[in-house]
């Protein structure tokens, strides 16, 4: 997204978004035998050669990098499905197509570490980039249509990375309209104490909050 954004307002760093995505379950085909893993994050395995097994993405990538398995690309990550999604994205300017919440992080991790397990990997990647672009553009346009005091925005099917990137802009836009439309508060200070100048404090509470 063009323009500056306060990374603090994004809340999650890109590596934190990726960290959360790494818990998504994917299917692997091991080429080794390994006993069950009873981990804090869950129980997985036992693993047998050529028998598919479901594990979190971080575990799948770790095994793949050590040459112990192949990763089965998720069924949404095919040229056919992604072409459908891209067409649908282009045809509906106000809706987002359903995609896994972490589709961006999942595809990135698979491209980085398991490219050979993805059929037509480069075409798949290019389709995903196009989908991202179309969706970002939709979010930007959507922001422009917020023209008054809005109390709720529905962003059906927006993904994790997209949420994180749009967050600062969205919050700032909504907050700005919210503030400007609310009635000004004029406080009458009730004066007591020895320093009793009959002075009224005008305006909303002052505070030391940094802008």
């Amino acid at each position: 997204m063009a323009g500056q954004s306060d990374p603090h307002l994004s809340l999650f760093s890109p590596s934190e978004v990726e960290f959360v995505a790494e818990d998504e379950i994917v299917e692997i085909v091991p080429n080794i035998r390994m006993e069950a893993l009873n981990m804090i994050c869950g129980d997985f395995g036992p693993f047998f050669p050529q028998i598919p097994s479901k594990v979190p993405l971080w575990l799948a990538v770790a095994l793949k990098r050590r040459g112990k398995c192949t990763i089965r690309a998720p069924e949404w990550m095919t040229v056919e499905r992604l072409t459908q999604v891209l067409d649908a994205e282009r045809e509906s300017p106000r809706e987002f197509q359903p995609l896994p919440f972490h589709y961006i992080e999942i595809s990135k991790l698979l491209f980085d570490h398991a490219r050979d397990d993805i059929t037509d990997a480069y075409l798949v990647r290019s389709l995903i980039e196009d989908i991202r672009d179309v969706r970002f553009h939709k979010v930007e346009t959507g922001l422009e249509t917020i023209s008054g005091r809005t109390h709720a925005v529905k962003l059906k099917n927006l993904s994790a990375m997209e949420v994180n990137i749009v967050r600062p802009f969205m919050v700032r836009t909504l907050q700005a309209f919210y503030k400007h439309d609310s009635p000004q508060m004029i406080q009458q200070a009730d004066n007591t104490g020895s320093r009793s100048t009959p002075v009224t404090d005008r305006g909303p509470r002052r505070d030391l909050r940094r802008r």
């Binding site: 919050v171 007591t192 104490g193 002052r206």
Partner: peptide
């Protein structure tokens, strides 16, 4: 009369110098 840490001066009717979070901020 101006030396309180929570109030601007004796004529303040409440703690007007204590930063607090904005609860009406928008969240996802």
């Amino acid at each position: 009369g101006y030396d309180s840490v929570t109030r601007q001066s004796l004529s303040s009717t409440e703690d007007d110098m204590v930063p607090e979070p904005q609860l009406d901020t928008f969240v996802f």
